[in-house]
Write a protein that binds this DNA or RNA. Structure first.
Length: 461
RNA sequence: GGCCCCAUCGUCUAGCGGUUAGGACACCGCCCUUUCACGGCGGUGACGGGGGUUCGAGUCCCCCUGGGGUCGCCA
Protein backbone atom coordinates (compact mmCIF):
# COMPACT_ATOMS: atom_id res chain seq x y z
CA UNK A 1 0.00 0.00 0.00
CA UNK A 2 1.25 3.41 -0.95
CA UNK A 3 0.54 6.21 1.49
CA UNK A 4 1.48 9.76 0.57
CA UNK A 5 0.84 13.07 2.21
CA UNK A 6 0.83 16.78 1.68
CA UNK A 7 2.03 18.63 4.74
CA UNK A 8 1.88 22.41 4.40
CA UNK A 9 2.46 24.83 7.21
CA UNK A 10 -0.46 27.22 7.53
CA UNK A 11 1.40 30.47 7.13
CA UNK A 12 -0.43 31.79 4.08
CA UNK A 13 -2.29 30.83 0.93
CA UNK A 14 -1.54 27.69 -1.05
CA UNK A 15 0.92 28.65 -3.74
CA UNK A 16 1.38 26.97 -7.08
CA UNK A 17 4.52 25.11 -6.08
CA UNK A 18 2.66 23.67 -3.14
CA UNK A 19 -0.23 22.71 -5.35
CA UNK A 20 2.08 20.84 -7.70
CA UNK A 21 3.59 18.95 -4.78
CA UNK A 22 0.13 18.13 -3.50
CA UNK A 23 -0.92 16.98 -6.97
CA UNK A 24 2.09 14.69 -7.35
CA UNK A 25 1.39 13.08 -3.98
CA UNK A 26 -2.30 12.79 -4.70
CA UNK A 27 -1.70 11.23 -8.11
CA UNK A 28 0.76 8.70 -6.78
CA UNK A 29 -1.62 7.62 -4.01
CA UNK A 30 -4.60 7.39 -6.35
CA UNK A 31 -2.65 5.52 -9.00
CA UNK A 32 -1.66 2.92 -6.45
CA UNK A 33 -5.08 2.82 -4.86
CA UNK A 34 -3.38 3.96 -1.69
CA UNK A 35 -4.03 6.78 0.71
CA UNK A 36 -3.39 10.50 0.51
CA UNK A 37 -3.18 12.32 3.82
CA UNK A 38 -3.48 16.04 4.39
CA UNK A 39 -1.55 17.14 7.44
CA UNK A 40 -1.25 20.68 8.72
CA UNK A 41 2.18 21.40 10.16
CA UNK A 42 1.36 23.90 12.85
CA UNK A 43 3.80 23.14 15.61
CA UNK A 44 4.97 26.72 15.75
CA UNK A 45 2.08 28.20 17.67
CA UNK A 46 3.25 31.73 17.03
CA UNK A 47 3.08 31.56 13.27
CA UNK A 48 0.14 29.63 12.00
CA UNK A 49 -3.36 30.84 11.40
CA UNK A 50 -6.72 29.23 10.83
CA UNK A 51 -7.38 31.45 7.85
CA UNK A 52 -4.35 29.95 6.17
CA UNK A 53 -5.61 26.45 6.81
CA UNK A 54 -8.95 27.41 5.36
CA UNK A 55 -7.27 28.96 2.34
CA UNK A 56 -5.46 25.69 1.68
CA UNK A 57 -8.66 23.69 2.02
CA UNK A 58 -10.48 26.10 -0.29
CA UNK A 59 -7.80 25.71 -2.92
CA UNK A 60 -8.01 21.92 -2.69
CA UNK A 61 -11.71 22.19 -3.08
CA UNK A 62 -11.47 24.41 -6.14
CA UNK A 63 -9.05 22.20 -8.04
CA UNK A 64 -10.87 19.07 -6.99
CA UNK A 65 -8.23 17.31 -4.93
CA UNK A 66 -9.54 15.28 -2.04
CA UNK A 67 -7.81 13.52 0.85
CA UNK A 68 -8.38 10.43 2.91
CA UNK A 69 -9.58 10.64 6.48
CA UNK A 70 -9.63 13.76 8.56
CA UNK A 71 -7.15 16.58 8.22
CA UNK A 72 -4.40 15.98 10.76
CA UNK A 73 -3.23 18.91 12.86
CA UNK A 74 0.12 18.55 14.51
CA UNK A 75 -0.82 21.06 17.15
CA UNK A 76 -3.28 18.46 18.43
CA UNK A 77 -0.68 15.74 18.69
CA UNK A 78 1.74 17.37 21.11
CA UNK A 79 1.37 14.67 23.76
CA UNK A 80 2.41 12.04 21.24
CA UNK A 81 5.58 13.95 20.40
CA UNK A 82 6.26 14.56 24.07
CA UNK A 83 6.38 10.84 24.73
CA UNK A 84 8.93 10.31 22.02
CA UNK A 85 11.06 13.18 23.26
CA UNK A 86 11.02 11.69 26.73
CA UNK A 87 11.91 8.31 25.28
CA UNK A 88 14.99 9.72 23.58
CA UNK A 89 15.94 11.60 26.71
CA UNK A 90 15.60 8.43 28.80
CA UNK A 91 17.66 6.44 26.37
CA UNK A 92 20.40 9.05 26.28
CA UNK A 93 19.81 9.75 22.59
CA UNK A 94 18.79 13.32 23.30
CA UNK A 95 19.77 15.84 25.92
CA UNK A 96 18.92 19.18 27.44
CA UNK A 97 20.88 22.12 26.17
CA UNK A 98 21.02 25.24 28.31
CA UNK A 99 22.53 27.56 25.80
CA UNK A 100 20.48 30.72 25.41
CA UNK A 101 19.51 32.11 22.02
CA UNK A 102 21.83 35.03 22.73
CA UNK A 103 24.77 32.75 23.41
CA UNK A 104 23.99 30.81 20.27
CA UNK A 105 23.89 34.00 18.26
CA UNK A 106 27.24 35.07 19.64
CA UNK A 107 28.72 31.69 18.79
CA UNK A 108 27.42 31.91 15.23
CA UNK A 109 28.84 35.40 14.84
CA UNK A 110 32.26 34.21 15.92
CA UNK A 111 32.17 31.21 13.61
CA UNK A 112 31.10 33.34 10.68
CA UNK A 113 33.90 35.80 11.35
CA UNK A 114 36.37 33.00 11.34
CA UNK A 115 34.92 31.90 8.05
CA UNK A 116 33.54 28.74 9.54
CA UNK A 117 30.19 27.19 9.00
CA UNK A 118 27.87 28.33 11.82
CA UNK A 119 26.67 25.48 13.94
CA UNK A 120 26.02 24.42 17.48
CA UNK A 121 29.19 23.18 19.16
CA UNK A 122 27.59 20.34 21.14
CA UNK A 123 28.76 21.81 24.42
CA UNK A 124 25.93 20.22 26.41
CA UNK A 125 26.00 16.87 24.65
CA UNK A 126 27.76 15.14 27.51
CA UNK A 127 27.11 17.73 30.19
CA UNK A 128 26.84 16.33 33.69
CA UNK A 129 27.33 19.41 35.83
CA UNK A 130 24.79 21.72 37.40
CA UNK A 131 22.65 23.48 34.82
CA UNK A 132 22.74 27.29 34.83
CA UNK A 133 19.93 28.97 36.72
CA UNK A 134 16.96 30.50 35.02
CA UNK A 135 17.53 28.96 31.61
CA UNK A 136 14.73 26.93 30.12
CA UNK A 137 16.53 24.28 28.13
CA UNK A 138 15.83 23.03 24.66
CA UNK A 139 16.14 19.38 23.79
CA UNK A 140 18.72 18.39 21.22
CA UNK A 141 19.15 15.05 19.55
CA UNK A 142 22.51 13.31 19.44
CA UNK A 143 23.43 13.21 15.82
CA UNK A 144 26.14 10.80 14.73
CA UNK A 145 29.63 12.28 15.07
CA UNK A 146 31.12 10.57 12.05
CA UNK A 147 30.26 8.64 8.94
CA UNK A 148 27.82 9.48 6.21
CA UNK A 149 24.07 9.58 6.06
CA UNK A 150 23.08 8.03 2.79
CA UNK A 151 19.67 7.63 1.26
CA UNK A 152 18.20 6.79 -2.09
CA UNK A 153 16.16 9.64 -3.54
CA UNK A 154 13.57 8.52 -6.07
CA UNK A 155 14.36 11.49 -8.30
CA UNK A 156 17.91 12.55 -7.58
CA UNK A 157 19.49 9.17 -6.96
CA UNK A 158 21.88 8.46 -4.11
CA UNK A 159 22.33 11.37 -1.73
CA UNK A 160 25.15 11.33 0.74
CA UNK A 161 25.76 13.83 3.53
CA UNK A 162 28.70 13.73 5.88
CA UNK A 163 27.88 13.56 9.57
CA UNK A 164 30.12 16.57 10.21
CA UNK A 165 27.72 18.66 8.19
CA UNK A 166 24.95 18.04 10.67
CA UNK A 167 24.78 19.23 14.25
CA UNK A 168 22.72 18.20 17.25
CA UNK A 169 19.60 19.94 16.09
CA UNK A 170 16.79 20.99 18.39
CA UNK A 171 13.84 18.66 18.67
CA UNK A 172 12.00 20.57 21.40
CA UNK A 173 11.94 24.29 21.97
CA UNK A 174 12.45 25.81 25.41
CA UNK A 175 8.68 26.08 25.75
CA UNK A 176 8.45 22.34 25.27
CA UNK A 177 6.93 22.34 21.79
CA UNK A 178 8.52 20.00 19.29
CA UNK A 179 10.15 21.18 16.07
CA UNK A 180 9.62 20.35 12.44
CA UNK A 181 12.24 17.76 11.61
CA UNK A 182 11.26 15.76 14.65
CA UNK A 183 7.49 15.74 14.24
CA UNK A 184 7.62 15.16 10.50
CA UNK A 185 9.54 11.95 10.98
CA UNK A 186 7.27 10.76 13.75
CA UNK A 187 4.06 11.57 11.94
CA UNK A 188 5.17 10.10 8.66
CA UNK A 189 6.09 6.91 10.48
CA UNK A 190 2.98 6.80 12.67
CA UNK A 191 0.65 7.55 9.78
CA UNK A 192 2.24 4.85 7.67
CA UNK A 193 3.50 7.21 4.99
CA UNK A 194 5.49 5.16 2.49
CA UNK A 195 6.37 7.80 -0.13
CA UNK A 196 7.33 11.36 0.64
CA UNK A 197 7.19 13.62 -2.42
CA UNK A 198 8.20 17.16 -1.53
CA UNK A 199 10.13 20.19 -2.75
CA UNK A 200 13.88 19.77 -2.97
CA UNK A 201 14.30 22.60 -0.51
CA UNK A 202 13.73 19.75 1.94
CA UNK A 203 16.66 17.75 0.66
CA UNK A 204 18.89 18.85 3.50
CA UNK A 205 16.17 18.06 6.07
CA UNK A 206 16.08 14.46 5.02
CA UNK A 207 19.28 13.34 6.77
CA UNK A 208 18.05 15.05 9.92
CA UNK A 209 14.80 13.17 9.73
CA UNK A 210 16.67 9.95 9.10
CA UNK A 211 18.54 10.56 12.34
CA UNK A 212 15.18 10.74 14.10
CA UNK A 213 13.87 7.61 12.39
CA UNK A 214 16.95 5.72 13.40
CA UNK A 215 17.04 6.97 16.96
CA UNK A 216 13.46 5.83 17.37
CA UNK A 217 13.78 2.66 15.33
CA UNK A 218 11.07 3.77 12.88
CA UNK A 219 10.73 2.70 9.30
CA UNK A 220 12.16 5.17 6.78
CA UNK A 221 9.91 6.03 3.82
CA UNK A 222 10.97 6.52 0.22
CA UNK A 223 11.87 10.12 -0.59
CA UNK A 224 11.35 12.02 -3.82
CA UNK A 225 12.68 15.56 -3.96
CA UNK A 226 11.00 17.56 -6.65
CA UNK A 227 12.96 20.46 -8.18
CA UNK A 228 11.66 23.93 -7.62
CA UNK A 229 9.49 26.00 -9.90
CA UNK A 230 11.23 29.15 -11.13
CA UNK A 231 9.62 32.38 -12.30
CA UNK A 232 9.45 33.36 -15.97
CA UNK A 233 12.92 34.87 -15.74
CA UNK A 234 14.27 31.59 -14.44
CA UNK A 235 14.81 32.97 -10.96
CA UNK A 236 13.49 31.83 -7.64
CA UNK A 237 9.78 32.31 -7.25
CA UNK A 238 8.90 35.08 -4.85
CA UNK A 239 5.85 36.99 -3.75
CA UNK A 240 6.64 39.68 -6.27
CA UNK A 241 6.23 37.27 -9.14
CA UNK A 242 2.57 37.91 -9.68
CA UNK A 243 0.13 35.15 -9.04
CA UNK A 244 1.48 32.81 -6.44
CA UNK A 245 -1.83 32.12 -4.75
CA UNK A 246 -3.69 29.28 -6.40
CA UNK A 247 -6.99 31.07 -5.92
CA UNK A 248 -5.70 34.03 -7.92
CA UNK A 249 -5.91 31.80 -10.96
CA UNK A 250 -9.58 31.32 -10.36
CA UNK A 251 -10.02 35.08 -10.22
CA UNK A 252 -8.10 35.46 -13.46
CA UNK A 253 -10.45 33.07 -15.18
CA UNK A 254 -8.41 29.89 -15.36
CA UNK A 255 -10.04 26.50 -15.19
CA UNK A 256 -8.77 24.16 -12.48
CA UNK A 257 -8.15 21.37 -14.99
CA UNK A 258 -5.96 23.74 -17.02
CA UNK A 259 -3.93 24.74 -13.97
CA UNK A 260 -3.46 21.13 -12.95
CA UNK A 261 -2.49 20.11 -16.48
CA UNK A 262 -0.04 23.01 -16.59
CA UNK A 263 1.46 22.12 -13.23
CA UNK A 264 1.78 18.42 -13.89
CA UNK A 265 3.86 19.14 -16.98
CA UNK A 266 6.21 21.32 -14.98
CA UNK A 267 8.87 18.79 -14.15
CA UNK A 268 6.97 15.71 -15.20
CA UNK A 269 6.31 14.31 -18.64
CA UNK A 270 5.00 11.28 -20.42
CA UNK A 271 6.59 11.24 -23.85
CA UNK A 272 5.20 13.96 -26.07
CA UNK A 273 1.80 14.14 -24.47
CA UNK A 274 0.69 17.62 -23.43
CA UNK A 275 -2.97 17.27 -22.58
CA UNK A 276 -3.84 15.18 -19.57
CA UNK A 277 -7.20 14.74 -17.93
CA UNK A 278 -7.03 14.08 -14.23
CA UNK A 279 -7.90 10.47 -15.00
CA UNK A 280 -5.01 10.15 -17.44
CA UNK A 281 -2.65 11.70 -14.94
CA UNK A 282 -3.67 9.11 -12.39
CA UNK A 283 -3.04 6.33 -14.89
CA UNK A 284 0.28 7.63 -16.18
CA UNK A 285 1.94 9.44 -13.31
CA UNK A 286 5.07 7.98 -11.81
CA UNK A 287 7.54 9.97 -9.74
CA UNK A 288 10.41 8.25 -11.53
CA UNK A 289 9.51 10.35 -14.57
CA UNK A 290 9.96 13.61 -12.70
CA UNK A 291 12.79 15.76 -13.99
CA UNK A 292 15.90 16.44 -11.98
CA UNK A 293 16.19 20.08 -12.90
CA UNK A 294 14.18 23.11 -11.93
CA UNK A 295 11.63 24.46 -14.37
CA UNK A 296 10.46 27.97 -15.13
CA UNK A 297 6.79 28.53 -15.60
CA UNK A 298 5.48 30.33 -18.65
CA UNK A 299 2.05 31.81 -18.56
CA UNK A 300 1.54 31.62 -22.31
CA UNK A 301 1.47 27.85 -22.08
CA UNK A 302 -1.07 28.04 -19.29
CA UNK A 303 -3.12 30.33 -21.54
CA UNK A 304 -2.96 27.81 -24.33
CA UNK A 305 -4.06 24.99 -22.07
CA UNK A 306 -6.81 27.10 -20.63
CA UNK A 307 -8.18 28.01 -24.04
CA UNK A 308 -8.03 24.36 -24.96
CA UNK A 309 -10.14 23.42 -21.97
CA UNK A 310 -12.56 26.31 -22.49
CA UNK A 311 -13.20 25.14 -26.04
CA UNK A 312 -14.08 21.73 -24.72
CA UNK A 313 -16.24 22.89 -21.85
CA UNK A 314 -20.00 22.41 -22.28
CA UNK A 315 -21.91 25.69 -22.56
CA UNK A 316 -23.94 24.82 -19.52
CA UNK A 317 -20.86 24.87 -17.34
CA UNK A 318 -19.58 28.04 -18.97
CA UNK A 319 -22.82 29.78 -18.03
CA UNK A 320 -22.12 29.05 -14.39
CA UNK A 321 -18.45 30.01 -14.63
CA UNK A 322 -19.32 33.30 -16.30
CA UNK A 323 -21.47 34.40 -13.38
CA UNK A 324 -18.36 35.03 -11.29
CA UNK A 325 -17.41 37.58 -13.92
CA UNK A 326 -20.68 39.42 -14.05
CA UNK A 327 -22.24 37.78 -17.09
CA UNK A 328 -25.60 36.10 -16.54
CA UNK A 329 -26.75 33.97 -19.40
CA UNK A 330 -28.95 31.40 -17.72
CA UNK A 331 -32.14 32.89 -19.15
CA UNK A 332 -30.78 34.17 -22.43
CA UNK A 333 -32.47 32.37 -25.33
CA UNK A 334 -29.46 32.76 -27.61
CA UNK A 335 -26.81 31.67 -25.13
CA UNK A 336 -25.84 28.62 -27.19
CA UNK A 337 -25.09 30.77 -30.23
CA UNK A 338 -23.22 33.28 -28.11
CA UNK A 339 -21.09 30.71 -26.31
CA UNK A 340 -20.40 28.67 -29.43
CA UNK A 341 -19.25 31.84 -31.16
CA UNK A 342 -16.96 32.89 -28.34
CA UNK A 343 -15.62 29.84 -26.57
CA UNK A 344 -12.85 29.10 -29.03
CA UNK A 345 -11.67 32.69 -28.97
CA UNK A 346 -11.08 33.20 -25.26
CA UNK A 347 -7.98 32.38 -23.30
CA UNK A 348 -9.67 32.82 -19.94
CA UNK A 349 -13.19 32.90 -18.56
CA UNK A 350 -12.55 36.53 -17.72
CA UNK A 351 -11.84 37.21 -21.39
CA UNK A 352 -14.88 35.25 -22.38
CA UNK A 353 -16.98 37.42 -20.08
CA UNK A 354 -15.48 40.55 -21.56
CA UNK A 355 -16.23 39.36 -25.09
CA UNK A 356 -19.78 38.49 -24.15
CA UNK A 357 -20.31 41.93 -22.68
CA UNK A 358 -19.00 43.55 -25.82
CA UNK A 359 -21.73 41.83 -27.75
CA UNK A 360 -24.55 42.05 -25.25
CA UNK A 361 -23.99 45.67 -24.39
CA UNK A 362 -24.37 48.48 -26.89
CA UNK A 363 -20.99 49.97 -27.83
CA UNK A 364 -20.10 53.09 -25.89
CA UNK A 365 -17.75 54.40 -28.52
CA UNK A 366 -16.21 53.58 -31.86
CA UNK A 367 -12.68 52.49 -32.56
CA UNK A 368 -10.88 55.35 -34.24
CA UNK A 369 -8.97 53.33 -36.78
CA UNK A 370 -12.12 51.38 -37.51
CA UNK A 371 -14.01 54.55 -38.25
CA UNK A 372 -11.36 55.61 -40.72
CA UNK A 373 -11.26 52.26 -42.39
CA UNK A 374 -14.92 51.33 -42.49
CA UNK A 375 -16.81 54.54 -42.89
CA UNK A 376 -15.99 55.50 -46.43
CA UNK A 377 -17.50 55.25 -49.86
CA UNK A 378 -21.11 54.17 -49.92
CA UNK A 379 -21.19 52.86 -46.38
CA UNK A 380 -24.17 55.00 -45.48
CA UNK A 381 -26.34 53.86 -48.35
CA UNK A 382 -25.33 50.27 -47.79
CA UNK A 383 -26.30 50.30 -44.12
CA UNK A 384 -29.51 52.15 -44.86
CA UNK A 385 -30.48 49.55 -47.40
CA UNK A 386 -29.61 46.84 -44.92
CA UNK A 387 -31.84 48.36 -42.24
CA UNK A 388 -34.63 48.78 -44.72
CA UNK A 389 -34.54 45.15 -45.71
CA UNK A 390 -34.17 43.98 -42.13
CA UNK A 391 -37.15 45.99 -40.99
CA UNK A 392 -39.30 44.34 -43.63
CA UNK A 393 -38.50 40.80 -42.51
CA UNK A 394 -38.59 38.33 -39.70
CA UNK A 395 -35.09 37.44 -38.51
CA UNK A 396 -34.15 35.23 -35.61
CA UNK A 397 -31.39 32.87 -36.55
CA UNK A 398 -27.93 33.64 -37.94
CA UNK A 399 -29.01 32.32 -41.35
CA UNK A 400 -31.83 34.85 -41.48
CA UNK A 401 -29.45 37.74 -40.96
CA UNK A 402 -26.93 36.26 -43.28
CA UNK A 403 -29.51 36.08 -46.07
CA UNK A 404 -30.22 39.77 -45.74
CA UNK A 405 -26.55 40.65 -45.92
CA UNK A 406 -26.31 38.56 -49.04
CA UNK A 407 -29.23 40.39 -50.63
CA UNK A 408 -27.55 43.72 -50.00
CA UNK A 409 -24.29 42.45 -51.39
CA UNK A 410 -25.99 41.24 -54.54
CA UNK A 411 -28.11 44.30 -55.07
CA UNK A 412 -25.27 46.77 -54.56
CA UNK A 413 -22.81 44.51 -56.35
CA UNK A 414 -20.25 44.79 -53.58
CA UNK A 415 -18.01 42.44 -51.63
CA UNK A 416 -18.88 41.29 -48.14
CA UNK A 417 -16.30 43.59 -46.68
CA UNK A 418 -18.09 46.70 -47.90
CA UNK A 419 -21.03 45.97 -45.66
CA UNK A 420 -19.27 43.86 -43.07
CA UNK A 421 -16.87 46.54 -41.91
CA UNK A 422 -19.33 49.35 -41.21
CA UNK A 423 -21.85 46.90 -39.86
CA UNK A 424 -19.29 45.46 -37.48
CA UNK A 425 -18.40 48.91 -36.30
CA UNK A 426 -22.05 49.68 -35.69
CA UNK A 427 -22.70 46.51 -33.76
CA UNK A 428 -19.51 46.15 -31.75
CA UNK A 429 -17.80 49.52 -31.90
CA UNK A 430 -14.64 47.88 -33.16
CA UNK A 431 -13.33 45.89 -36.08
CA UNK A 432 -12.77 42.51 -34.45
CA UNK A 433 -15.21 39.92 -33.24
CA UNK A 434 -17.20 36.86 -34.17
CA UNK A 435 -19.39 36.26 -37.19
CA UNK A 436 -21.79 39.16 -37.70
CA UNK A 437 -24.76 36.96 -38.39
CA UNK A 438 -24.21 35.33 -35.02
CA UNK A 439 -23.89 38.69 -33.32
CA UNK A 440 -27.13 39.92 -34.83
CA UNK A 441 -28.98 36.77 -33.95
CA UNK A 442 -27.78 37.07 -30.38
CA UNK A 443 -28.84 40.66 -29.85
CA UNK A 444 -31.92 40.37 -32.08
CA UNK A 445 -33.44 42.36 -34.89
CA UNK A 446 -34.54 45.40 -32.88
CA UNK A 447 -31.20 45.86 -31.16
CA UNK A 448 -29.40 45.38 -34.46
CA UNK A 449 -31.41 48.14 -36.10
CA UNK A 450 -30.94 50.37 -33.10
CA UNK A 451 -27.18 50.02 -33.19
CA UNK A 452 -26.92 50.61 -36.92
CA UNK A 453 -29.08 53.70 -36.67
CA UNK A 454 -27.00 54.95 -33.81
CA UNK A 455 -23.89 54.74 -35.96
CA UNK A 456 -25.67 56.49 -38.81
CA UNK A 457 -26.74 59.17 -36.34
CA UNK A 458 -23.26 59.57 -34.87
CA UNK A 459 -21.57 60.00 -38.21
CA UNK A 460 -23.93 62.17 -40.19
CA UNK A 461 -22.68 63.31 -43.54
C1' G B 1 31.78 30.99 1.91
C1' G B 2 30.98 25.26 3.36
C1' C B 3 27.93 21.30 1.89
C1' C B 4 24.29 19.25 -1.51
C1' C B 5 21.71 19.28 -6.21
C1' C B 6 21.10 20.61 -11.36
C1' A B 7 22.44 21.85 -16.89
C1' U B 8 18.80 19.77 -24.74
C1' C B 9 15.46 25.38 -28.93
C1' G B 10 13.34 31.90 -25.55
C1' U B 11 10.04 28.41 -22.27
C1' C B 12 8.03 23.25 -20.94
C1' U B 13 10.17 18.82 -22.54
C1' A B 14 11.39 13.66 -25.58
C1' G B 15 16.03 11.29 -25.82
C1' C B 16 18.08 6.47 -21.84
C1' G B 17 26.03 4.98 -26.99
C1' G B 18 24.68 5.01 -33.49
C1' U B 19 18.34 10.01 -34.48
C1' U B 20 18.25 14.61 -40.61
C1' A B 21 18.31 15.69 -32.06
C1' G B 22 11.39 14.70 -31.81
C1' G B 23 6.93 17.27 -29.69
C1' A B 24 4.35 21.50 -27.26
C1' C B 25 3.94 26.91 -26.05
C1' A B 26 5.64 31.47 -27.97
C1' C B 27 7.39 33.80 -32.56
C1' C B 28 7.34 34.32 -38.20
C1' G B 29 5.01 33.06 -43.06
C1' C B 30 1.02 30.94 -46.01
C1' C B 31 -4.04 29.08 -46.33
C1' C B 32 -9.16 29.57 -44.55
C1' U B 33 -12.21 34.27 -43.98
C1' U B 34 -17.00 39.97 -43.97
C1' U B 35 -12.87 41.49 -39.45
C1' C B 36 -10.20 39.45 -35.28
C1' A B 37 -9.50 34.94 -33.34
C1' C B 38 -9.90 29.52 -33.93
C1' G B 39 -8.18 25.86 -37.23
C1' G B 40 -4.79 23.72 -41.16
C1' C B 41 0.10 23.80 -43.41
C1' G B 42 5.14 25.37 -43.28
C1' G B 43 9.43 27.92 -41.03
C1' U B 44 13.29 30.22 -37.52
C1' G B 45 15.34 28.02 -33.17
C1' A B 46 18.89 23.81 -28.58
C1' C B 47 22.67 19.57 -26.69
C1' G B 48 27.04 25.91 -21.77
C1' G B 49 32.78 25.16 -22.33
C1' G B 50 37.09 21.90 -22.03
C1' G B 51 39.20 17.26 -21.38
C1' G B 52 38.77 12.01 -21.39
C1' U B 53 36.28 6.62 -22.24
C1' U B 54 34.61 4.42 -26.94
C1' C B 55 34.87 2.34 -33.70
C1' G B 56 31.04 6.01 -32.29
C1' A B 57 28.87 10.58 -27.41
C1' G B 58 23.09 14.99 -25.99
C1' U B 59 23.55 10.18 -23.72
C1' C B 60 29.27 7.48 -19.49
C1' C B 61 33.60 9.87 -16.32
C1' C B 62 36.45 14.37 -14.69
C1' C B 63 37.25 19.69 -14.52
C1' C B 64 35.43 24.60 -15.44
C1' U B 65 31.41 27.84 -15.95
C1' G B 66 26.49 28.96 -14.86
C1' G B 67 22.00 28.22 -11.98
C1' G B 68 19.40 26.43 -7.64
C1' G B 69 18.90 24.64 -2.57
C1' U B 70 20.58 24.77 2.40
C1' C B 71 23.37 26.28 6.67
C1' G B 72 16.91 28.89 12.74
C1' C B 73 14.22 27.46 19.54
C1' C B 74 10.42 28.41 10.57
C1' A B 75 8.39 24.66 8.02
Amino acid sequence: MVVTRFAPSPTGYLHIGGLRTALFNWLWARKNKGKFILRIEDTDLARNSQEATKAILDAFDWVGLDYDGEVAYQSQRFDIYKKYIQKLLDEGKAYYCYMTPEELDALRQEQMQRGERPRYDRRYRDFTGTPPEGVKPVVRIKAPLEGDIVFEDGIKGTISIKAEELDDFIIARSDGTPTYNFVVAIDDALMGVTDVIRGDDHLYNTPKQIIVYEALGLKIPRFYHVPMILNEQGKKLSKRDGAMDVMEYKKMGYLPEALLNFLVRLGWSHGDQEIFSLQEMVELFDPKDINKSASAYNLSKLDWLNSHYIKNTPNERLVGLLEDFGVFLANHDKKEILLDALKDRAKTIKELAQMAKEILEEPTGYDEKGVKKALKGEWREILQLFVQKLQAKEAHLPVDFHAIIEEVVKEKEIGFGKIGQPLRLALLGKMAGPDLSDVMAIIGKEETIKRVQKLLENFKA
